[in-house]
Design a protein around this nucleic acid. Structure first.
Length: 636
DNA sequence: CCCCCCCC
């Protein structure tokens, strides 16, 4: 139907820089851009649209690649009606004053339609800087450009070749050398013809490589030291910092001359106006912000300190927290932001780096949230200065995910560590949760081999495991076996464990209400029950003794170590026998870690259970738990 | 254009 109302005049308003309105427009032409990049896969394919507002058309509208599928699925086609949800004006070629509209978000309102009206074409030139009179910019060049000789390195690219991944194909005037004196550095208060336009501040989350003439107002939320490097082009130096505003954050790096200039100027926590820097795709491996792009300060970058009080509305930092349990699902050696309560803190320790033979100091924390706990390593000065004795809420921004013994977190020296951060509601939530219940909860620890149970394993018989010599190598082997538990040392299923969170050692019951931990060299007035179950599992080919710890023992027996320990204390023999009997009468998949250990001069393969699964474990476990609970109330 | 961040 052709009766959709188009937003007359909106194209001109967009081109004049008023890009906030959500106009309804008609797509009157679609062109595929032959990107001529090195990438033949078509991944960088782009579409250029001609849009009509009923009265005017504009033919240089670049469609964001994430919407390519609209065209490829034939949802967006010639004469479709769309609503423009996010658009920006981009000056692509200042020599000739050409501009384009970047379409970042749009919605197809009506796929099939007839052509509406008889619109005329708007010029492709910079209407913003020509006061909307539509004349070619060459006739009204501004002073900067009038004095500038044509830059040798920047022949205007053909319009169809302009938008690509990466910035190399996108020379803008901002990247070219300005001949008229040193206007690269605007001192506070400004001066000259290259001061910052504070009236047109844009949000950090809208920055992209295809725009220029932007200014951001941002706080330095993290600042690195100057580092030296050496590569094929010789030695160099750099520093990086993170910049935030209310919309988001971005990483920025300065090399060599800019490194010297801006490292001394930018202060951690202060707010600055920043204009004219290069933008490129963020390197996910090293970028701890959530921005798709990162910034490089260049020759033309202008940074001006914000006057006192002017930056009050700019946040201190942007966190993108993931729950601790989610760390288990993330790729190792990437970074993330987490927040939690410090449940325990180790003393300072010293290690020697294998690579450099240098000594490093460290401290380990156990960080907890409502669902899980994880080991966090602090290094050097950060470790020395850390005081976790009051169980503070700590936020980490840009912390590295490691995969030792499950999942761990390890601080970089640019990891931001914040005690009781005020910018997030989580601080209060976690404080209340921890003080009321969290401090006495026993949560799954991602740093205690949690991921071992998740790795894919082959299913083999017990005879195959022995015949193939699994576990005899230097590294452990993981294998699954379909088997039934046939024997269990029920009297030794639980032991009294040191109450210290990171210890795990067996304590000696001194039979006077105190319990001695030799590892901690301390005497406690309490202990924790912990599982270490020796069980024999059997299949049709053989039998094997295995050791079953916490999570798997809970799955095997259907109750917690604390509950089991309570029955043991009560000397409820019949209940324990019933629990064990129920655990033994059906087949399950046991996931095992096989690893040879030396016992005097005998090499023996030790099998540790790292996972137990059942055909329908959840309903079975609940049934088992319900039955046990009906027998006798569990005492805590 | 860097990108090291350590050990069990």
């Amino acid at each position: 139907m052709a009766n959709q109302r188009l937003t007359t005049g909106s194209l001109l308003r967009y081109l004049r820089g008023n890009t906030t309105e959500k106009a309804t427009l008609q797509v009157v032409g679609i062109k595929t851009i032959d990107s001529k990049t090195d990438d033949p896969s078509g991944a960088s394919k782009r579409y250029r649209l001609m849009l009509s507002d009923g009265k005017a058309t504009f033919s240089s509208c670049m469609l964001g690649t994430q919407m390519n599928k609209l065209i490829e699925t034939n949802s967006l086609k010639e004469n479709s009606i769309v609503r423009i949800d996010r658009v920006m004006v981009n000056s692509i070629d200042k020599q000739n004053g050409r501009v384009m509209l970047m379409l970042y978000e749009l919605e197809v309102l009506q796929s099939d339609c007839e052509r509406i009206g008889d619109p005329v074409a708007l010029p492709l030139t910079d209407i913003i800087n020509n006061n909307g009179n539509g004349t070619n910019r060459l006739e009204t060049v501004n002073n900067n450009q009038a004095q500038a000789p044509p830059p040798a390195a920047a022949a205007p690219p053909p319009a169809t070749n302009v938008i690509r991944q990466g910035s190399k194909a996108l020379p803008t005037l901002d990247n070219q050398k300005k001949p008229n004196g040193d206007n690269r550095f605007a001192a506070k208060g400004g001066g000259g013809n290259n001061t910052i336009d504070k009236e047109r501040i844009i949000n950090i989350d809208t920055l992209n490589p295809y725009m220029n003439k932007w200014t951001i107002k941002a706080r330095v939320s993290n600042k690195g030291q100057i580092r030296n490097y050496e590569n094929a082009r010789g030695p160099g130096k750099l520093f990086s910092c993170d910049l935030v505003d209310q919309s988001g954050e971005i990483r920025a790096t300065a090399f060599n001359a800019e490194c010297d200039k801006f490292h001394s100027m930018l202060e951690m926590g202060e707010v600055y106006y920043i204009a004219k820097a290069s933008l490129k795709a963020a390197n996910r491996q090293f970028n701890t912000t959530n921005n798709d792009y990162e910034m490089t300060f260049n020759h033309d970058t202008i940074i001006e300190a914000c006057d006192a009080g002017e930056g009050e509305n700019i946040p201190q930092v942007q966190f993108n927290f993931i729950p601790i349990s989610e760390v288990a699902n993330r790729t190792a050696n990437t970074t993330c932001d987490v927040i939690g309560v410090v449940k325990s803190t180790s003393d300072m320790q010293t290690i020697v780096s294998k690579a450099s033979q240098k000594e490093f100091t460290k401290r380990e924390l156990l960080l907890v949230d409502e669902k899980a706990s994880i080991s966090v390593t602090l290094w050097g000065q950060q470790a020395e200065e850390f005081d976790g004795s009051s169980h503070p809420v700590i936020a980490f921004k840009g912390i590295k995910i490691g995969d030792f013994n499950g999942r761990t977190l390890s601080c970089f020296n640019n990891t931001l560590i914040r005690h009781d951060p005020t910018e997030t509601q989580r601080t209060v939530e976690l404080r209340v949760w921890y003080d009321n219940e969290g401090k006495s909860m026993d949560l799954p620890d991602l740093s205690k081999g949690a991921d071992a149970g998740n790795r894919p394993t082959a299913v083999k018989t017990l005879a195959q495991i022995i015949a193939e010599g699994l576990g005899l190598g230097d590294k452990p082997d993981y294998v699954s076996v379909k088997a039934m538990s046939t024997l269990m040392k029920k009297d030794q299923a639980v032991y009294m464990m040191c109450p210290e969170e990171r210890c795990g050692k067996k304590v000696v019951d001194e039979n006077n209400g105190s319990y001695r931990c030799e590892k901690c060299n301390k005497t406690y007035n309490n202990f924790k029950w912990a599982y270490m179950v020796s069980a024999e599992i059997s299949d049709t080919t053989g039998a094997q003794w295995i050791t079953v710890f916490r999570n798997e023992a809970e799955a095997l027996l259907g109750l917690t170590a604390e509950e089991f320990g309570a029955h043991k204390l009560n000397q409820s023999e019949s209940i324990i026998e019933e629990i064990v009997r129920k655990a033994m009468n059906h087949e399950r998949i046991f996931k095992l870690r096989a690893k040879a250990e030396q016992y005097n001069d005998e090499r023996k393969i030790k099998f540790t259970c790292v996972g137990i699964s059942d055909i329908d474990w959840s309903s079975h476990g609940r049934r088992l738990l319900d039955e046990i609970k009906q027998m006798e109330p569990v005492q805590n």
